[in-house]
Design a protein around this nucleic acid. Structure first.
Length: 1101
RNA sequence: GGGCCUGUAGCUCAGCUGGUUAGAGCAUCCGCCUGAUAAGCGGAAGGUCCGUGGUUCAAAUCCACGCAGGCCCA
């Protein structure tokens, strides 16, 4: 008999997953699998153009940083969903994008070039600076590509988009111009969060990114503002001062007013000072806080804030003293103003106002006709206007300012407070608030529409729509879109440089610029674009020039433009854009509700009156086990490269995608990566194990599974075991449907759970129960071979379908198995399983029955455990009694084998061993009977009920009257329970959890049963010896045994059994050893404490 | 100060369109099988469902008020 060729790969039981992944990656690259998986799906299904596309937008990462753990998580989701949709037949194009502009790039360039600040950059040369930025932002693209590729993420790097590309930027200009034409842009002066370190204002949402709020210690001072006598009221009887509190002493030199709450009560205190009596005014509710300083003071009156409004005071500093004189009939500076926002929670109820440095200050002061001087330069240093502190960084000036106040007698209290203070997300330096000129998008005008359009978006998790994002939209403010920087899309506005001849031009594209300037920009970046000058057409003298304003656009304007700018819309691809907007799906981390999600929504609403994406998934943040953010500095996370090397990408993918982080919560990642190893153990190994089993036996038998249809037919032909075939195929169908349902809802974790549960059914039920069918010797075309073929067909089909179903979740492993199983093309080029075409029967009843079978077996095992009887010991009989028992008829063989009994009896009547318990269906009963429900539940629990011959059930008891209370059929279930006083002897009883049947195991043993049990014990030790000897599962052996008497007798009585189950061609007795030494070729073991020896010798086949 | 989320077994989390006895995985304990897998399988133990009130015949689930944690906004 010649050796049959192995139809399947010879694979190890313990695979090296990283090695497999490397192989699969090489194959994908060689066979251009990704490209083909996209290309083979038509964009339209024959209906409307593009109707077969699933549109995915890839949020562009900042290009000049390296990919980190968080990117991997997002990347996996960005891969799983498109792979799934591709299987479903959709065309899913995936363009990678690079976010090139903005502060991150500029900061890095400043650092590396040693050029700090705007003035230094101008001196260095804007062109050289920007050239440096351009080169540096693409520095890590290679590393990105490598990591993303290694993670198995399929994305198109060739056809990527870059926000610094000319076409992209031209689309951004178009957006600006379009918004301008709609009247949604304006230029204005406002107080903005300003990063003096980065020398630029930030948008309100940039200050909210990540952990920009950080604890910081600052001085808090309480200062005295000395009121000037009020001649009209005859003057104050004594010198009087207002107390004000601030945590930004450096703004005091710019103080122009103080504000009080008009309706608040203020206390008038009198105290003795060095220079005689004086009076102090502060919020009545705040007096207590200043007990230390004002303890000796007497309250001599109280006054409403309203009454203080208009009073003048002496400026603390001389720098802006001239503003006390009203400019054009206004009231002038250094007066008490009214402001509703003033409260007495913090401070004194009197608020110092520096309109150049506070948003509310500016509003209040502007209403009072006051200017907003800003004596602080771009770098956060005082200007010459404030001569005493000129050149000092404002925070550094605090101590000197406080000292000067003290010397001047203007300081009441100096303390230090720790508070949360916003910091610059790029430089980590504290921000200041500063009046700036800026360009604004008037978001407040279409806020309501954004809220409306948001209702069309499906957010995952759902609460984000009306919660985090919805609430944020409702409070949206105008967006400061300009930055006083260099590396960005230029604001396309040209202004006349002569105010006598004003003119403003806005350009929305290269053609328009060429038309007016006579040449076409080849690069829209500064400084080139700044060189486009022309005479002002509105100036008859011809002397003034149109010059571009210096600002560039906020980088978030770039990324918000991604849906149209990536396609150079509207200059090209008009149709393409229409078909790819809005996106079907995007995913980023939760904080992008302030970033990319938000800016896309703003621009989509303003420009197109549409929502930009239909399904948006927000995931949480990965933290370490201490709850800290993952940081390079702390090295508190498993290195991705290391995980790839040890466990592989599929394990990491599964770990992340199956975790609650996808539902928006945070995930604690253990640095040691143990949970990832658990994925290997719990998911990858079992899947591999099933495949290994298949290969092992199929190769030994030289048989192939027939996958192309007919498996079901083959299963039907086969004998008694075919029910397992039908079961696993029906179970597989249920899996396919469950995973589809989950994936369609973007519940990736749920899909993982379904796959993991299925693996258990496949390995620990179908395969384990089917093993004898794979063991049996071939017998050319006998019934054994038909059954064997059916088993291979079924297992092959189950594996093949499982691979296709799980391929988005485990793209490497499933492709490796699929290729070995089916040959030919990658699993990722196939279709989602179709139960009809793939012959997967729908049989929920069979699946439910099999679940019941497993319950019966579990019950039997529990009974054995209770009685301390090992499973190898055959027992006389298992009885399953109850109305549900008959359904198990087709499974008796299976149960008999699994629980090791000689007979399985199914009986409808369980009266002898079980009693009935009434379980009322409260859901049905409640609406009908209301209050009575609880009493009925009580009665049922106490067994106060009767059943008549027709099966009618009445609960009895005084409260239900003499007749009792009749229950309708749908209002109760009768469940079986083991009877304490059962009439069976030596029987263990265990009710099934379903209550439909009760299992009774007969533990009475006789000589034969005992012997068989011992024979099985012998078989077990022989199997251990086989394994120890390194034999193949199908090798035949000559078996030698040296056993205690009882076992020898058992082997003699069950010799055939022992031979069959150990593949022994002969069994002989070994001579009793003369010493304790074990002969070299023998395997030593113990049976019930007695030493035994076994020799296994490979026999001819 | 306001908003959103979270609070369930030792740990990580399901369940929460109200329905009697609250589940899973991991960890623990006990045991078992073994001609694929000991990186396996089974069984058991483990819970005032954060608290207090309320609605209801019935609350982990709905409502109110708290408490604790996270995030966001003032």
């Amino acid at each position: 008999m010649g050796k049959r060729p192995a139809p399947y790969p010879e694979i190890p039981a313990q695979p090296n997953f990283p090695e497999i992944e490397a192989r699969v990656l090489a194959r994908w690259r060689r066979e251009k699998t990704f490209e083909r998986s996209v290309a083979q799906r038509p964009a339209s299904s024959g209906g409307a153009a593009g109707d077969n596309e699933f549109v995915f937008y890839d949020g562009p990462p900042f290009a000049n940083g390296l990919p980190h753990f968080g990117h991997l998580l997002t990347g996996y989701v960005k891969d799983v969903v498109p792979r799934y949709q591709t299987l479903r037949g959709r065309r899913v194009e995936r363009r990678f994008g690079w976010d090139c502009h903005g502060l991150p790039a500029e900061m890095e360039a400043e650092r590396e070039l040693g050029v700090q600040g705007r003035a230094a950059i101008r001196a260095y040369g804007i062109e050289k600076f920007n050239d440096y930025c351009r080169a540096s932002v693409l520095r890590y693209t290679g590393q990105w590509r490598k990591t993303v590729t290694r993670a198995g993420r399929w994305v198109d790097f060739e056809n990527d988009y870059k926000t610094m590309g000319l076409p992209y930027m031209e689309s951004v200009l178009w957006a600006f111009k379009t918004l301008w034409d709609k009247g949604l842009l304006y230029e204005g002066t406002r107080v903005l969060p300003y990063s003096w370190a980065a020398q630029t204002p930030l948008s309100n949402f940039e200050t909210r990114l990540d952990d920009s709020l950080r604890a910081r210690q600052d001085p808090a001072v309480t200062v005295r503002f000395e009121l000037l006598p009020e001649p009209s009221q005859g003057g104050d009887p004594l010198p009087t001062e207002l107390l004000a509190w601030t945590t930004t002493p450096w703004t005091l030199p710019s103080n122009l007013a103080v504000a009080v709450g008009p309706e608040l009560d203020y206390a008038l205190l009198e105290l003795d000072g060095k220079n005689g009596k004086r009076r102090v005014i502060l919020g009545a509710a705040c007096v207590q806080k200043f007990a230390a300083e004002l303890g000796a003071a007497r309250q001599v009156g109280s006054v409403k804030g309203r009454a203080l409004v208009g009073r003048r005071y002496r400026p603390l500093f001389p720098f802006f003293a001239e503003l006390a004189q009203p400019a054009e009939g206004g009231p002038g500076a250094f007066r008490v103003l009214a402001a509703d926002f003033v409260d007495v929670e913090e401070g004194t109820g009197v608020v110092h106002m520096a309109p150049g440095f506070g948003e509310e200050d500016m509003e209040i002061c502007r209403a009072a006709g006051l200017p907003a001087p800003v004596p602080v330069d771009e770098a956060g240093r005082f200007t010459a206007e404030v001569s005493d502190y000129a050149g000092m960084l404002v925070f550094d000036a605090n101590p000197k300012i406080i000292r000067d106040l003290r010397e001047r007698g203007a300081l009441l209290r100096h303390e230090t407070i720790e508070h949360n203070y916003p910091h610059c997300w790029r430089t980590d330096e504290p921000l200041i608030y500063r009046a700036m000129n800026s360009w604004y998008l008037q978001v407040s005008r279409f806020k309501a529409r954004m809220v409306e359009l948001n209702r069309r978006i499906n957010w995952i998790p759902g609460h984000v729509r009306d919660g985090l994002f919805g609430k944020w939209l409702e409070t949206a403010r105008d967006w400061s879109i300009s930055r006083n920087r260099f590396w960005g899309t230029p604001i396309p506005v040209w202004k006349s440089d002569d105010p006598q001849h004003p003119r403003v031009d806005v350009y929305g594209g290269l053609d328009e610029i060429e038309r007016d300037f006579g040449r076409r920009p080849r690069d829209l970046h500064r400084p080139h674009i700044d060189e486009f000058l022309r005479p002002n057409p509105d100036d008859p003298s011809g002397k003034s020039t149109m010059r571009r304003v210096p600002e560039v656009l906020d980088v978030w304007f770039d990324s918000g433009s991604m849906p149209f700018a990536q396609a150079h819309y509207p200059f090209e691809n008009r149709e393409w854009f229409e078909k790819h907007f809005p996106a079907d799906f995007i995913v980023e981390y939760l904080a992008q509700t302030r970033g990319w999600f938000y800016t896309m929504h703003v621009l989509a609403t303003a420009l197109f009156d549409r929502h930009p994406f239909a399904n948006c998934m927000c995931h949480g943040v990965a933290l370490d086990t201490e709850g800290r953010k993952l940081s390079k500095r702390l090295r508190n996370y498993p290195e991705p490269e290391e995980v790839f090397r040890t466990h592989g990408s599929d394990a990491l993918r599964w770990y992340l995608v199956s975790s609650p982080i996808l539902r928006g919560s945070d995930l604690a990642v253990a640095k040691d990566g143990k949970p990832i190893a658990d994925v290997v153990r719990g998911v990858l190994n079992p899947l591999w194990s099933a495949w290994h089993f298949f290969c092992l036996y199929a190769n030994a038998d030289g048989m192939r599974a027939r996958l192309g249809g007919g498996a079901e037919g083959a299963a039907a032909e086969a004998g008694s075991h075919a029910i397992l075939d039908r079961y696993i195929l029906a179970k597989t169908r249920a899996l396919v449907e469950e995973v589809a349902k989950r994936m369609d809802r973007y519940d990736l974790a749920g899909a993982c759970q379904a796959v993991a549960a299925h693996l258990d059914a496949l390995n620990n039920w179908f395969i384990r129960r089917s093993r004898p069918r794979f063991w049996r010797a071939r017998n050319a075309d006998g019934p054994e071979d038909l059954d064997k073929q059916a088993a291979y067909d079924t297992l092959g089909r189950a594996l093949e379908t499982l691979c296709r179903t799980a391929s988005p979740l485990l793209p490497f492993l499933t492709d490796e198995i699929y290729k070995g199983l089916c040959g030919g093309e990658s699993v990722h080029l196939g279709d989602w399983p179709d139960p009809q075409k793939d012959g997967l029967p729908a049989d929920p009843q069979l699946v439910a029955d099999m679940d019941q079978v497993r319950e019966v077996c579990s019950a039997a095992f529990a009974l054995r455990r209770r009685e301390n009887v090992r499973i190898r010991q055959p027992l006389r009989a298992l009885t399953v009694a109850g109305p549900g028992a008959a359904r198990l008829r087709p499974f008796v063989e299976l149960i008999r084998d699994e629980v090791n009994v000689k007979e399985v009896r199914l009986e409808a009547d369980s009266a002898g061993i079980a009693s009935l318990r009434l379980q009322v269906n409260a859901r049905a009963l409640g609406p009908r009977l209301g209050k009575m429900t609880q009493k009925i539940i009580q009665a049922a629990k106490q067994g106060r009920w009767e059943q008549d011959a027709d099966g009618n059930v009445r609960v009895t008891g005084e409260e239900f009257g003499p007749e009792g209370l009749h229950l309708e059929k749908n209002e109760f279930d009768l469940r079986l329970e083991a009877r304490e006083d059962n009439d069976a002897s030596r029987q263990g009883l265990q009710a099934l959890p379903s209550g439909e049947a009760i299992a009774a195991l007969d533990f009475r043993l006789d000589e034969t049963l005992l012997r068989e049990g011992l024979a099985r014990d012998v078989v077990r030790v022989v199997q251990q010896a086989r394994r120890a000897a390194g034999l193949h599962v199908s090798d035949r052996i000559r078996l030698g045994l040296q056993l205690p008497d009882s076992y020898r007798e058992a082997v003699a009585a069950f010799e055939d059994y022992v031979r069959e189950n150990t593949l022994a061609t002969s069994i002989s007795s070994l001579a009793a050893p003369e010493s304790d030494a074990v002969p070299a070729q023998c395997f030593a073991a113990e049976l019930e404490g007695e030493p035994v020896q076994i020799s296994v010798e490979k026999a001819a086949p």
